[in-house]
Design a protein around this nucleic acid. Structure first.
Lengths: 363, 363
DNA sequence: CTGAAAGCGCTAACAG
DNA sequence: CTGTTAGCGCTTTCAG
């Protein structure tokens, strides 16, 4: 029964069909007072039959809201595909947004500065209601920009100094758990092959690792990489050639762990008997290799969903709540921001063959 | 020098600052005739200084164009993360779109029908200018809907019957290449562990595989799966227990190939001496395992970029060209559609240890 | 509770 | 070549 002709269906068509004014239709469909329940029902009915939906641009223009949130990934394109992390994150974010009828605008850029440029454009064009920020680095230019521009944002990770509401992980606890696990197995020299050193969460894990190891009486070692398999191979080689060879290595992602495993095995060392391995992010990869890798499993989809939900809440608050003006009262403001943080789903250590029972030969 | 105050910067501000009318500003910035070059330059200068960009909703409303294209992934969320395929595809698409200042709206849904619902909503809301379609299945409801709704679309894969412009891969040629490679190595019994049987490209590969094997005098076998590691393990088990055990197995994605490798090795069979393995899509995974896997490498980012570019061209044509009305003249129309197809980047066989030299022990 | 009308910011067709 | 003006489709005050 739908009109197939060229003209677009407008609220006027619905109004005419329902025998009311366009204003009434608007009230009826937005659940606002101003129409009788009978009328409301009829309007909804008619709109449904006609398959009418408010034109997104027109609506945005009048309510100054786009129904869209943005996500800019600031990572060299080449590394995005390797880790399943991002796809899962996006999946989680999207699932939550879709539930609320909010769209996700996605963009990839090579750097944090380029990311800011995208934000700047989005703000100028009024293209998104808010953004989700990931991979916060040291001296990240994004939080400051977002605050000044007044673009609502939620950070995944990062620290309290950002001044943005965050979804905060339990990396520190997870690191402690890993170290405790290794200590229990009798390891004395433990190494960590960490990711891009600029990343705040990488740094946090580094520090937590060193601290946890020290306080357990172990000897920690650190090697930095760029998260790639190639870098992991180099780092692993280097570790294996050290005078004091670590008997356990913790990798900062799944790809690096698997790459490291290959190197260890190529050196004729047995896993886990001579070297135990742990991957951060668990993934299909970790249980596909032999021996299967012990991993820190995080609910990444859940993390994304929480971040999205937090942002939606922020947007809803902004509609009625106080003007998030950049001003004085730093302390009170920071407190509010802190209170606004949300804990990410707990990560857990999945123990597999790469760290099982057999105690390492200490040297 | 930017105004930090609350009010949004509008074209009127730019006009005032440049001492011209708003109309002149619009002409100047859209590269249209109607202003002197001197004025145009001044306007552009001023707009730049002010950091003004046309408000996206307002612009969309008047030009009936959103500057956004949509991508809906119709796959159960759980499998999206495993394959790096999608992330690479998105990366490629996005890179091309970003160059033209076009946004990418992303959504994930569990089925093709749900996908159509998203399209329906997008059309009703005027949310996107066009869409990119992937994972075409047999009797896919999407192409018909898109044609009827008049929503510009480009399909990645699928067959000519879709009636949509496509980016067409060279799967058939690639399959032939794989089979020829295996035949050359002396394999007689070759198997293919294929993905979801509903997918058109899976079916195409199945047929090409059988045909190529037959015409090379080989004995092909097929097992269907759902692309998961789990299904691959089951399929591989089954293959290894067959009376006539295949000496070479071709997997429809990287994850399945690696999972299959583990099963083969668990059976005490040596790769490639006793069983040779080939992965479709190459990825980090394939060169991380031992032995490294021979794989059909495709330029997935390139594929995405081409599809995006094709869609942008379609949109540009639509602006000035003929009304893409669904009507008679099927033949002519089909011809046009065919001519509008674009070849995907060529795939190539990357030979690694999993199929190297040593001839299989034929039985 | 309902209908008319103004305006969101921009583009494009119109007179000057 | 320039300035004025009428919409794009919706929401939302403001009279009735």
């Amino acid at each position: 029964m739908t009109t197939r002709a060229g003209r677009r269906l407008t609220i006027a068509d619905v109004a005419r069909a329902a025998g009311v004014s366009t204003g009434a239709v608007s009230y009826a469909l937005n659940g606002k007072p101003g129409v009788s329940e009978a009328t409301r029902a009829r309007v909804i009915q008619v709109a449904g039959e006609l398959g009418w939906r408010p034109h997104s641009a027109a609506r945005s223009l009048s309510v100054a809201r786009t129904g869209t949130v943005g996500l800019v990934l600031a990572r060299p394109a080449s590394t995005l595909g390797d880790e399943s992390f991002y796809m899962q994150l996006i999946t989680g974010i999207e699932a939550e947004l879709a539930q609320q009828g909010t769209g996700l605008l996605l963009q990839m850029v090579p750097s944090e500065d380029a990311c800011v440029e995208v934000y700047r454009r989005w703000v100028a064009q009024g293209r998104v209601d808010g953004v989700l920020v990931s991979d916060i680095v040291h001296d990240d230019p994004r939080p400051a920009f977002l605050r000044e521009a007044g673009l609502p944002a939620v950070a995944m990770g990062g620290d309290a100094a950002l001044g943005l509401p965050r979804v905060v992980g339990d990396d520190e606890r997870a690191v402690q758990q890993v170290v405790a696990h290794l200590a229990e197995l009798g390891h004395r020299h433990v190494a960590r092959v960490s990711g891009l050193p600029g990343l705040l969460h990488v740094r946090l894990r580094d520090e937590a690792f060193t601290a946890a190891a020290r306080s357990a009486g172990l000897h920690p070692q650190l090697v930095s990489t760029d998260f790639t398999a190639r870098a992991s191979r180099r780092a692993t080689e280097r570790l294996l050639q050290r005078r004091v060879r670590p008997t356990a290595v913790v990798y900062d992602n799944d790809v690096m762990a698997v790459a490291g495993l290959a190197v260890v095995q190529a050196h004729g060392l047995r896993v886990p008997q001579e070297v135990a391995l742990v991957a951060w992010d668990d993934s299909a990869l970790c249980s596909l290799v032999h021996p299967r890798l012990t991993a820190v499993a995080r609910d990444i989809r859940g993390l994304g969903a929480l971040a999205a939900r937090r942002l939606l809440r922020l947007l809803a608050e902004g509609d009625s709540g106080a003007d998030a003006g950049a001003g004085a009262g730093d302390e009170a403001e920071a407190q509010v921001a802190a209170a606004a943080d949300v804990p990410a789903p707990a990560s857990r250590l999945v123990v597999r063959e790469s760290t099982s029972a057999s105690p390492p030969e200490t040297r």
